[in-house]
Design a protein around this nucleic acid. Structure first.
Lengths: 173, 173
DNA sequence: ACCTGAACACCGTTCAAGT
DNA sequence: ACCTGAACACCGTTCAAGT
């Protein structure tokens, strides 16, 4: 007899995302995700052959959220601020986005999608790499507590941003 | 009867570092590190209460290596190149350096030490944060394969570096 | 087709006992 | 003091059996 699914791909990824932000990456284990999605651990393997593949899908969903967040921002500066806000609001998810895993997956390509609007707006691959590297580095270090001692992180972000956008023709957001 | 140690802190960290670079972070487990250092798994807990504390010590050693590598470089540009070379040569170790773990540890402070010479040379905390954020972001993305498609990574690095050091009074290395 | 309980391997960690 | 074997908990993963 054909069997009715008790859950869906959306529910599974949503359950994993919730566990990730509320209890951290370690809490996103196959058993916990499965139960949160209404099934048992082993059943999850019908959909994801390994935990890494599940995490890839979680990251993919996170990248879509990030793109949606940056999309409406018209200037590069506004996109950069939206990027940072996303990382500050969902630090565990942001950490997952840049934790390289599966070789076979297309995560690397999907990460590249985030940078595309910036490359187009700046009109230069080198300039886009300068900005995106700084952006990723800045929020990574901020999340890791690297700026804990002294200084005004907010001001440093804005200062760096305007410094990097100098003479690049981007309207100030 | 007092018992003679079969190994030393140096041997343990060295064994862990070797496992890290040759077989990745997952291979740095308590059993494997212990055996590589000449003892059995449970004995390692006499020196490190948890695996995370062992990894903290490995990261601490890695940061000392990184500082030693950057030390001789006289200009900020040369320090930045040394930083990148270190990351490219020891990617697994570099990944470990910036993977936040123990709250109680002093790793965050030790990471700050690496930036100190750059802050001093540039004479501005904001300018140092701009450069170190870009540096960390650039090599992180490079290691993660973000620059896989198109462009000349080497040239982009040099371009970004000179762009960031413009009008900062740093002699070209 | 999809779900489940039972089982296995591996790893972090503890502990009582050895020297 | 430091080392060890045995044991436990937890988790990723497999599999035979259910519907």
């Amino acid at each position: 007899m054909p069997a009715a699914p008790k859950t869906s791909a959306e529910d599974i990824v949503a359950a994993a995302l919730k566990l990730l932000e509320t209890r951290g990456l370690d809490a996103v284990n196959m058993q916990a995700v499965a139960v949160a999605a209404g099934i048992k651990g082993p059943s999850l393997y019908k959909r994801y052959a390994t935990r890494d593949l599940l995490l890839d899908d979680v990251a993919r969903e996170g990248l879509l959220d990030l793109e949606a967040r940056m999309g409406p921002a018209r200037t590069v500066a506004a996109k950069a601020r939206a990027y940072r806000q996303f990382a500050l609001e969902r630090p565990q998810l942001y950490g997952l986005l840049y934790a390289a895993r599966e070789e076979g997956g297309d995560l690397v390509a999907r990460r590249g999608e985030v940078a595309k609007p910036i490359i187009e707006a700046l009109g230069s691959l080198a300039a886009a790499r300068l900005l995106t590297a700084w952006l990723h580095g800045f929020v990574s270090m901020e999340l890791a507590g690297a700026f804990r001692l002294g200084g005004d992180t907010e001001k440093d972000f804005e200062w760096g941003l305007s410094r990097l956008l100098e003479s690049s023709g981007d309207a100030r957001g």
